[in-house]
């Protein structure tokens, strides 16, 4: 068994025990945020790290999921256990639509068009008052059976577990290898029978769906969704998490989510200072640590998904 699955299982198990040891609601809140961002960062990582294109429009899927869950709960009276998966499914559909358009583009064009989609959705949320309640947003979203912080913790842990499982499966599958091949060399990929568009599409739709799950959870947890959910600051946090941790790895975004969430919380009352620091961090990472924190740990290098599952030497002996 490749060792990053062991690390992931250990982390999830440790997280499951966390609320038993900690009762402080503030600490639990931070832990919930960390897991929420683990989901977001991992989902963005599928696009940035495995499709190899830089999406600045990932908030589109977070927002679609959040609005979907909010509306389904408020207007259709769906229970929480149904709204969150439905949010993921709707965001995946949106991902299919946006991906079909954007994945034909590359480099700066992809960046700008994904960003444009998020902006268009923000403007729609702002102006389609009949449905979204415009800039006032949707408030008082019901929380259903999620009555205390600990239940919310387990809900987001479940979402994170699903996310990491799906990411793990993708990365270690034939389809994931295909995506890496396309990222590394489009020509080689095609010459060995990989459809570059189809391969990127799978990662993109999966990433969108997972971001939608995160959005659905967010709507119920915060009980409010407004057009601000599409704004760039969420996007900035996500990118920084993926970059700091190490894109194209499974563990990197988790490390990034933990560090950045704690840093954000520490600097919560100093929005400008916080973002100033973020800006500096992004520049520093690009210049000095392009492969993220995970590249600092040489022992962990084996865990990089594109370095992996080596065949047991006994297998090779047989041949």
């Amino acid at each position: 068994m490749p060792s990053d699955s062991r690390i992931l299982l250990t982390l999830l198990a440790a997280a499951a025990l966390f609320p038993l040891a900690v009762h402080d609601p503030y600490v639990l809140h931070i832990a919930i945020l960390v897991l929420f961002y683990v989901v977001l960062a991992s989902s963005l990582n599928l696009i940035v790290g495995y499709v190899g294109e830089f999406s600045l429009g990932h908030t589109a899927f977070l927002g679609v999921g959040a609005y979907a869950a909010a509306l389904l709960a408020q207007k259709a009276g769906w229970p929480v256990w149904a709204t969150i998966p439905a949010a993921g499914a709707l965001a995946a559909v949106a991902g299919g639509f946006i991906g079909a358009i954007t994945l034909r583009l590359k480099g700066p064009y992809f960046v700008i068009v994904t960003l444009s989609f998020a902006e268009v959705l923000r403007l729609v949320a702002n102006n389609w008052i009949a449905v979204t309640n415009g800039p006032m947003g949707l408030a008082g979203i019901p929380q259903g059976f999620l009555q205390d912080k600990r239940l919310f913790f387990y809900a987001v842990l479940a979402v994170a577990a699903v996310t990491l499982y799906l990411c793990y499966r993708f990365v270690h599958s034939n389809a994931g290898r295909g995506a890496v091949a396309v990222r590394e060399s489009r020509f080689v990929a095609q010459s060995i029978g990989i459809n570059p568009f189809g391969s990127a599409m799978l990662a993109f739709v999966l990433g969108a769906g997972l971001a939608g799950l995160a959005g659905g959870f967010y709507a119920h947890y915060i009980t409010f969704v407004g057009p601000d959910i599409f704004q760039f600051s969420f996007m900035a946090s996500m990118i920084i998490m993926v970059l700091i941790g190490g894109k194209g790895t499974l563990i990197g975004p988790i490390i990034g989510a933990a560090i950045v969430t704690l840093l954000e919380e520490y600097l919560r009352d100093m929005q400008e200072l916080r973002l100033t620091l973020f800006g500096l961090i992004v520049m520093a990472v690009v210049l000095f640590l392009p492969n993220g924190i995970i590249s600092l740990a040489p022992k962990l290098k084996r865990l990089r998904p594109h370095a992996p599952a080596r065949p047991v030497s006994a297998d090779r002996g047989v041949l």
């Binding site: 890496v180 091949a181 080689v188 060995i192 992996p308």
Partner: peptide
């Protein structure tokens, strides 16, 4: 050179099996 530079020899060849591995 038409290989995936960041991947190991084993990974490169395994990726080459894409068509047989589709699920």
């Amino acid at each position: 050179t038409s290989v995936m530079k960041k991947l190991t020899v084993f990974e490169n060849v395994r990726t080459g099996h894409y068509m047989q591995g589709r699920q």
